[in-house]
Protein backbone atom coordinates (compact mmCIF):
# COMPACT_ATOMS: atom_id res chain seq x y z
CA UNK A 1 0.00 0.00 0.00
CA UNK A 2 1.05 3.59 -0.25
CA UNK A 3 -0.01 7.19 -0.12
CA UNK A 4 1.02 10.68 0.89
CA UNK A 5 0.14 11.37 4.51
CA UNK A 6 -0.20 14.65 6.31
CA UNK A 7 -0.45 15.58 9.97
CA UNK A 8 -1.01 19.10 11.27
CA UNK A 9 -2.29 20.70 14.50
CA UNK A 10 -5.04 22.74 12.93
CA UNK A 11 -7.03 23.49 9.80
CA UNK A 12 -4.81 26.26 8.38
CA UNK A 13 -1.71 24.11 8.57
CA UNK A 14 -3.61 21.10 7.20
CA UNK A 15 -4.72 23.03 4.13
CA UNK A 16 -1.13 24.11 3.42
CA UNK A 17 0.04 20.53 3.59
CA UNK A 18 -2.90 19.33 1.50
CA UNK A 19 -1.75 21.66 -1.23
CA UNK A 20 1.74 20.16 -1.28
CA UNK A 21 0.54 16.60 -0.78
CA UNK A 22 -1.95 16.73 -3.66
CA UNK A 23 0.80 17.60 -6.13
CA UNK A 24 3.06 14.83 -4.87
CA UNK A 25 0.29 12.24 -4.81
CA UNK A 26 -0.67 13.03 -8.38
CA UNK A 27 2.87 12.38 -9.58
CA UNK A 28 3.06 9.13 -7.62
CA UNK A 29 -0.42 8.20 -8.77
CA UNK A 30 -1.46 7.59 -5.20
CA UNK A 31 -3.81 8.99 -2.56
CA UNK A 32 -3.63 11.72 0.05
CA UNK A 33 -4.57 10.88 3.62
CA UNK A 34 -4.96 13.52 6.34
CA UNK A 35 -5.14 12.98 10.09
CA UNK A 36 -7.90 14.68 12.05
CA UNK A 37 -8.98 14.78 15.68
CA UNK A 38 -11.52 16.55 17.86
CA UNK A 39 -13.60 17.92 15.04
CA UNK A 40 -14.99 15.30 12.66
CA UNK A 41 -16.93 18.12 10.97
CA UNK A 42 -13.71 18.98 9.18
CA UNK A 43 -13.47 15.63 7.40
CA UNK A 44 -15.65 16.77 4.50
CA UNK A 45 -13.78 20.06 4.37
CA UNK A 46 -10.43 18.28 4.08
CA UNK A 47 -11.82 16.01 1.37
CA UNK A 48 -13.07 19.05 -0.54
CA UNK A 49 -9.56 20.49 -0.28
CA UNK A 50 -7.84 17.43 -1.73
CA UNK A 51 -7.77 14.64 0.85
CA UNK A 52 -8.80 11.21 -0.46
CA UNK A 53 -8.93 9.74 2.98
CA UNK A 54 -9.36 11.29 6.44
CA UNK A 55 -8.04 9.29 9.34
CA UNK A 56 -9.88 10.22 12.50
CA UNK A 57 -7.94 9.87 15.71
CA UNK A 58 -10.07 8.89 18.73
CA UNK A 59 -10.53 11.54 21.41
CA UNK A 60 -7.97 11.56 24.20
CA UNK A 61 -8.40 11.44 27.96
CA UNK A 62 -8.51 14.93 29.46
CA UNK A 63 -4.94 14.68 30.78
CA UNK A 64 -3.34 13.37 27.60
CA UNK A 65 -1.32 15.63 25.30
CA UNK A 66 -1.58 15.27 21.51
CA UNK A 67 1.69 13.37 21.50
CA UNK A 68 -0.28 10.47 22.98
CA UNK A 69 -1.45 9.82 19.40
CA UNK A 70 2.04 8.78 18.36
CA UNK A 71 1.62 5.01 18.97
CA UNK A 72 -1.67 4.96 17.01
CA UNK A 73 -0.15 6.88 14.11
CA UNK A 74 2.94 4.66 14.06
CA UNK A 75 0.86 1.50 14.08
CA UNK A 76 -1.20 2.76 11.18
CA UNK A 77 1.95 3.72 9.27
CA UNK A 78 3.38 0.25 9.78
CA UNK A 79 0.18 -1.24 8.40
CA UNK A 80 -0.26 1.10 5.44
CA UNK A 81 3.38 1.84 4.55
CA UNK A 82 2.91 5.37 3.17
CA UNK A 83 5.41 6.70 0.60
CA UNK A 84 5.61 10.17 2.06
CA UNK A 85 4.62 11.63 5.41
CA UNK A 86 4.50 15.42 5.84
CA UNK A 87 4.03 17.06 9.23
CA UNK A 88 3.45 20.73 10.01
CA UNK A 89 6.50 22.14 11.81
CA UNK A 90 4.63 23.56 14.78
CA UNK A 91 6.09 23.08 18.27
CA UNK A 92 4.13 19.86 18.73
CA UNK A 93 4.41 18.77 15.12
CA UNK A 94 8.20 18.84 15.29
CA UNK A 95 8.25 16.61 18.34
CA UNK A 96 5.66 14.24 16.94
CA UNK A 97 7.41 13.94 13.57
CA UNK A 98 10.80 13.24 15.15
CA UNK A 99 9.37 10.59 17.45
CA UNK A 100 7.33 8.96 14.68
CA UNK A 101 10.39 8.95 12.42
CA UNK A 102 12.39 7.44 15.27
CA UNK A 103 9.90 4.62 15.76
CA UNK A 104 9.60 3.98 12.02
CA UNK A 105 13.37 4.09 11.65
CA UNK A 106 13.16 6.54 8.82
CA UNK A 107 14.77 9.83 7.83
CA UNK A 108 13.16 13.19 8.50
CA UNK A 109 13.96 16.46 6.77
CA UNK A 110 13.26 19.07 9.47
CA UNK A 111 11.95 22.45 8.42
CA UNK A 112 11.79 21.57 4.73
CA UNK A 113 11.55 24.72 2.58
CA UNK A 114 11.20 23.14 -0.88
CA UNK A 115 10.71 19.67 -2.24
CA UNK A 116 10.46 17.99 -5.62
CA UNK A 117 10.91 14.54 -7.08
CA UNK A 118 14.23 13.52 -8.58
CA UNK A 119 14.53 12.09 -12.10
CA UNK A 120 13.17 8.71 -11.01
CA UNK A 121 9.98 10.47 -9.99
CA UNK A 122 9.91 8.60 -6.68
CA UNK A 123 12.56 10.06 -4.47
CA UNK A 124 12.09 13.50 -2.97
CA UNK A 125 14.85 16.05 -3.13
CA UNK A 126 14.27 18.24 -0.12
CA UNK A 127 15.82 21.54 0.87
CA UNK A 128 16.31 22.92 4.34
CA UNK A 129 18.37 25.65 5.96
CA UNK A 130 21.45 24.92 8.04
CA UNK A 131 24.03 27.04 9.89
CA UNK A 132 21.30 29.33 11.10
CA UNK A 133 20.14 30.00 7.55
CA UNK A 134 23.56 30.77 6.07
CA UNK A 135 23.41 27.65 3.91
CA UNK A 136 20.92 25.40 2.16
CA UNK A 137 21.21 21.66 2.63
CA UNK A 138 19.70 19.36 0.04
CA UNK A 139 18.80 15.91 1.30
CA UNK A 140 17.07 12.75 0.22
CA UNK A 141 15.53 10.15 2.44
CA UNK A 142 16.93 6.64 2.03
CA UNK A 143 14.15 4.93 3.95
CA UNK A 144 10.34 4.70 3.94
CA UNK A 145 8.28 6.74 4.46
CA UNK A 146 10.14 9.82 3.27
CA UNK A 147 9.35 12.31 6.01
CA UNK A 148 9.54 16.09 6.28
CA UNK A 149 8.28 18.78 8.61
CA UNK A 150 7.16 21.94 6.86
CA UNK A 151 7.14 25.35 8.53
CA UNK A 152 3.81 27.19 8.76
CA UNK A 153 3.04 29.34 5.71
CA UNK A 154 5.81 27.87 3.59
CA UNK A 155 3.15 26.90 1.07
CA UNK A 156 -0.16 28.46 0.14
CA UNK A 157 -3.30 26.71 1.43
CA UNK A 158 -5.16 24.33 -0.87
CA UNK A 159 -8.28 25.71 -2.49
CA UNK A 160 -11.57 23.78 -2.48
CA UNK A 161 -11.71 21.54 -5.53
CA UNK A 162 -15.44 21.27 -5.88
CA UNK A 163 -17.13 17.91 -6.04
CA UNK A 164 -14.84 15.40 -4.42
CA UNK A 165 -15.47 12.25 -2.52
CA UNK A 166 -13.28 10.51 -0.04
CA UNK A 167 -13.21 8.00 2.74
CA UNK A 168 -13.39 8.70 6.43
CA UNK A 169 -11.92 6.10 8.68
CA UNK A 170 -11.71 6.05 12.48
CA UNK A 171 -8.61 4.66 14.08
CA UNK A 172 -8.62 2.66 17.29
CA UNK A 173 -7.59 4.36 20.55
CA UNK A 174 -4.18 3.63 22.00
CA UNK A 175 -3.19 3.28 25.64
CA UNK A 176 -2.68 6.49 27.61
CA UNK A 177 0.96 7.64 27.72
CA UNK A 178 3.19 8.43 30.68
CA UNK A 179 3.22 12.18 30.02
CA UNK A 180 0.19 13.72 31.73
CA UNK A 181 -1.10 17.27 31.44
CA UNK A 182 -1.57 18.86 34.85
CA UNK A 183 -2.37 22.39 33.74
CA UNK A 184 -3.04 24.44 30.62
CA UNK A 185 -2.66 28.17 30.20
CA UNK A 186 -4.01 29.12 26.79
CA UNK A 187 -2.50 32.22 25.29
CA UNK A 188 -4.72 35.27 25.00
CA UNK A 189 -5.31 36.20 21.36
CA UNK A 190 -2.97 38.99 20.34
CA UNK A 191 -4.07 41.81 18.17
CA UNK A 192 -2.24 42.34 14.91
CA UNK A 193 -0.46 39.55 13.17
CA UNK A 194 3.05 39.92 11.81
CA UNK A 195 2.71 36.90 9.56
CA UNK A 196 0.55 38.63 6.99
CA UNK A 197 1.38 42.29 7.55
CA UNK A 198 2.25 44.25 4.41
CA UNK A 199 4.59 46.55 6.28
CA UNK A 200 6.72 45.41 9.20
CA UNK A 201 8.79 47.61 11.43
CA UNK A 202 11.10 45.31 13.28
CA UNK A 203 13.10 46.29 16.37
CA UNK A 204 16.25 44.83 17.81
CA UNK A 205 18.50 45.27 20.78
CA UNK A 206 19.61 48.65 19.46
CA UNK A 207 16.60 49.98 21.32
CA UNK A 208 17.67 51.00 24.82
CA UNK A 209 14.48 50.69 26.79
CA UNK A 210 10.95 49.48 26.49
CA UNK A 211 9.44 52.99 26.50
CA UNK A 212 11.33 53.74 23.31
CA UNK A 213 9.05 51.33 21.48
CA UNK A 214 6.79 54.37 21.19
CA UNK A 215 9.19 55.81 18.62
CA UNK A 216 8.97 52.69 16.51
CA UNK A 217 5.23 52.38 16.97
CA UNK A 218 4.77 55.88 15.61
CA UNK A 219 6.57 54.99 12.41
CA UNK A 220 4.51 51.81 12.13
CA UNK A 221 1.31 53.80 12.53
CA UNK A 222 2.24 56.25 9.81
CA UNK A 223 3.03 53.40 7.41
CA UNK A 224 0.07 51.29 8.48
CA UNK A 225 2.41 48.53 9.54
CA UNK A 226 2.83 46.08 12.41
CA UNK A 227 5.58 45.92 15.00
CA UNK A 228 7.87 42.91 14.99
CA UNK A 229 11.19 42.17 16.72
CA UNK A 230 14.25 39.97 17.05
CA UNK A 231 14.30 37.01 19.36
CA UNK A 232 16.05 38.67 22.33
CA UNK A 233 13.47 41.47 22.41
CA UNK A 234 10.67 38.92 22.82
CA UNK A 235 12.36 36.06 24.67
CA UNK A 236 14.81 37.84 26.94
CA UNK A 237 13.37 41.31 27.41
CA UNK A 238 9.70 40.41 26.89
CA UNK A 239 8.97 43.83 25.38
CA UNK A 240 6.83 42.37 22.62
CA UNK A 241 4.81 39.13 22.40
CA UNK A 242 6.65 35.99 21.39
CA UNK A 243 4.67 35.52 18.21
CA UNK A 244 6.11 38.78 16.88
CA UNK A 245 9.72 37.70 16.69
CA UNK A 246 11.07 36.86 13.31
CA UNK A 247 13.64 34.32 12.23
CA UNK A 248 14.77 30.75 12.18
CA UNK A 249 13.00 29.80 15.37
CA UNK A 250 10.32 32.47 15.10
CA UNK A 251 8.05 33.63 12.31
CA UNK A 252 8.98 33.66 8.65
CA UNK A 253 7.43 36.68 6.98
CA UNK A 254 6.84 37.98 3.46
CA UNK A 255 5.91 41.66 3.81
CA UNK A 256 6.13 44.22 1.01
CA UNK A 257 8.39 46.28 3.22
CA UNK A 258 10.52 45.32 6.18
CA UNK A 259 12.33 48.03 8.11
CA UNK A 260 14.81 46.73 10.68
CA UNK A 261 15.66 49.18 13.45
CA UNK A 262 18.70 48.56 15.65
CA UNK A 263 19.14 45.02 14.37
CA UNK A 264 22.57 43.53 13.73
CA UNK A 265 21.36 41.19 11.02
CA UNK A 266 22.57 37.87 12.32
CA UNK A 267 21.67 35.04 10.04
CA UNK A 268 19.14 33.42 12.38
CA UNK A 269 17.04 36.56 12.20
CA UNK A 270 17.63 37.40 8.55
CA UNK A 271 16.50 33.94 7.49
CA UNK A 272 12.98 34.94 8.46
CA UNK A 273 12.86 37.95 6.10
CA UNK A 274 14.38 36.32 3.06
CA UNK A 275 11.12 36.63 1.16
CA UNK A 276 10.38 40.27 1.97
CA UNK A 277 9.93 42.38 -1.18
CA UNK A 278 11.96 45.27 0.15
CA UNK A 279 14.38 45.12 3.06
CA UNK A 280 15.43 48.35 4.76
CA UNK A 281 17.57 48.89 7.84
CA UNK A 282 18.58 51.54 10.30
CA UNK A 283 21.76 50.89 12.23
CA UNK A 284 24.48 53.14 13.59
CA UNK A 285 27.19 50.65 12.69
CA UNK A 286 27.90 50.99 8.99
CA UNK A 287 29.44 47.52 8.98
CA UNK A 288 26.39 45.84 10.50
CA UNK A 289 25.54 42.63 8.66
CA UNK A 290 21.96 43.78 8.15
CA UNK A 291 23.16 46.23 5.47
CA UNK A 292 24.54 43.34 3.41
CA UNK A 293 21.07 41.92 3.04
CA UNK A 294 19.23 45.24 2.72
CA UNK A 295 17.96 47.03 -0.34
CA UNK A 296 18.15 50.40 1.38
CA UNK A 297 19.77 51.37 4.64
CA UNK A 298 20.31 54.41 6.80
CA UNK A 299 23.54 54.56 8.75
CA UNK A 300 22.75 56.48 11.89
CA UNK A 301 21.50 56.58 15.43
CA UNK A 302 17.94 55.34 15.53
CA UNK A 303 17.08 57.92 18.16
CA UNK A 304 17.67 60.76 15.76
CA UNK A 305 16.73 58.94 12.55
CA UNK A 306 13.35 57.55 13.63
CA UNK A 307 11.62 60.82 14.54
CA UNK A 308 12.83 62.45 11.36
CA UNK A 309 11.89 59.47 9.24
CA UNK A 310 8.42 59.35 10.75
CA UNK A 311 8.00 63.05 10.05
CA UNK A 312 9.16 62.69 6.45
CA UNK A 313 6.90 59.73 5.74
CA UNK A 314 3.98 61.55 7.30
CA UNK A 315 4.68 64.59 5.15
CA UNK A 316 5.16 62.61 1.94
CA UNK A 317 2.10 60.42 2.49
CA UNK A 318 0.00 63.40 3.53
CA UNK A 319 1.06 65.29 0.42
CA UNK A 320 0.23 62.32 -1.77
CA UNK A 321 -3.29 62.15 -0.40
CA UNK A 322 -4.21 65.74 -1.04
Amino acid sequence: MAGVWILADNRDRTLELLNVAAGLAEKLDTKVAAFLWNDSQLAEDYIAHGADEVLILPSLEEDQPLEAYIPTIVEEALRQDPDIFLVAATARGKEMAARIAGRLNTGLCSGCTALQFDETGKKLIMERLVFGGAAVQTVTCLTRPQMATIAPRTFAPAVPLGDRTGQVRELAAGLPGLVRIVDRKPKAKQSGDVSDAKVLICVGRGLEKEEDLALVRELANVLGGELACTRPIAEELHWLPEETYIGLSGQKVKPDIYIGVGISGQIQHVTGIRDARLICAINRDENAAIFEVSDYGIVGDLYSVLPELTREFKRALGAGKE
Partner: peptide, 15 residues
Amino acid sequence: CLQTITILASSMERN
Protein backbone atom coordinates in the same frame (compact mmCIF):
# COMPACT_ATOMS: atom_id res chain seq x y z
CA CYS B 1 18.40 7.44 6.88
CA LEU B 2 18.99 10.85 5.32
CA GLN B 3 21.58 11.57 2.69
CA THR B 4 23.01 15.01 2.10
CA ILE B 5 23.45 15.85 -1.57
CA THR B 6 24.79 19.39 -1.26
CA ILE B 7 25.30 22.17 1.26
CA LEU B 8 25.60 25.55 -0.44
CA ALA B 9 25.60 29.11 0.79
CA SER B 10 22.15 30.63 0.65
CA SER B 11 22.37 33.74 -1.43
CA MET B 12 20.54 36.86 -0.45
CA GLU B 13 21.39 39.43 -3.05
CA ARG B 14 19.92 42.86 -2.38
CA ASN B 15 20.54 46.40 -3.62
